[in-house]
Design a protein around this nucleic acid. Structure first.
Lengths: 167, 167
DNA sequence: ATTAATTTTCATTATTTACTGAAAGTTCAA
DNA sequence: TTGAACTTTCAGTAAATAATGAAAATTAAT
């Protein structure tokens, strides 16, 4: 396979995987493009490479910045803004975990806590309902702790540490 | 909060969380409904509870069965099919992990392996590209091992084991 | 074998989500 | 302080995804 072909394949497939995870296809593609770009690139570069509109690039870049995955770069002597993505994959992963935890896991745990406060806990079926809710909450809480550890740990320590114990 | 209200809230919110994770809203709602149903229920029950069409229920139920999250139940003396979901949340989680691993992680690792086979590895920019690809592949492989351990482990062993080491 | 009950399929329709492009806004050099 | 370069917004449109409902297929009781 040619390098250019491989790069294109990477971008496209990354977009496809993204959609499966509830991430906008274009956003995933832009991130992929930035991951394999050796130097910072502009909105126009992205428009051209992915053949998408200026507005689309702009909105998704801002989203990516909001996720902490992309940064603006100022190139001295240049008027245009440049963008770059962290190439350290462990950092990318922990950043995504951190954000999803905040955006999704935390709200979910909050909701489950509220659902535990039902008026009449003796009512028909209340026990079963509360069991399911508290079990999910418990598992969610444990996932939360585990992910916190991952976020704080260094890659090597975390993975090798876990694998060691269970082997 | 009233029990019925809490149940409704649970179903709706579960649907909303589902969409964030790339899961069809209705499918998540049906799963939620089955999780908090004390006895097996029929397609008609689901249609009524969620006010959705027969075709919709049927397709999503089949999907859920495909994910290994829902089972058909035969009630003796009844013509209709009944459905039920495993209430053991750890089992639900490992089942979902198992399926997503198979459907998403495995294909991704396969793709990345292919992308490493580019013709001219001396070409301008090839080194950087290959580094990103192999880093992702490495992280993916480690995630794969970790998830395998989770799938095999008992809930208590896994969580407490991991937390213990890193505390 | 017939037929009534039930499940499944899938073309059509509706809803949701994403994208475009032009206009408005901002920045900065002269 | 003007205007060219560049960025941002967002109403309108397109594309993707999900839901409907009626017809076809299947099942099982008589």
């Amino acid at each position: 396979m040619k390098l250019e072909e491989a790069k294109q394949q990477f971008i496209n497939s990354w977009g496809a995987f993204g959609t499966q995870w509830g991430i906008n296809r274009t956003m995933a593609q832009i991130h992929a493009l930035l991951l394999i770009s050796t130097a910072p690139i502009t909105q126009d570069d992205i428009m051209e490479q992915l053949t998408i509109s200026r507005g689309n690039v702009n909105m998704n870049i801002r989203d990516l910045i909001g996720w902490g995955l992309v940064e603006r770069v100022i190139v001295s002597g240049e008027r245009k803004e440049y963008f770059t993505a962290d190439k350290n994959i462990w950092k990318v992963a922990t950043q995504i975990i951190k954000e999803r935890k905040k955006r999704e896991l935390d709200p979910m745990l909050k909701l489950l806590g509220q659902l535990e406060n039902i008026d009449d806990k003796k009512e028909e079926g209340a026990k079963e309902f509360l069991t399911v809710v508290s079990d999910i909450k418990k598992l969610g809480g444990q996932a939360d702790s585990l992910l916190d550890i991952m976020i704080k740990a260094e890659e090597n320590k975390f993975i090798s540490g876990v694998l060691k114990i269970f082997k």
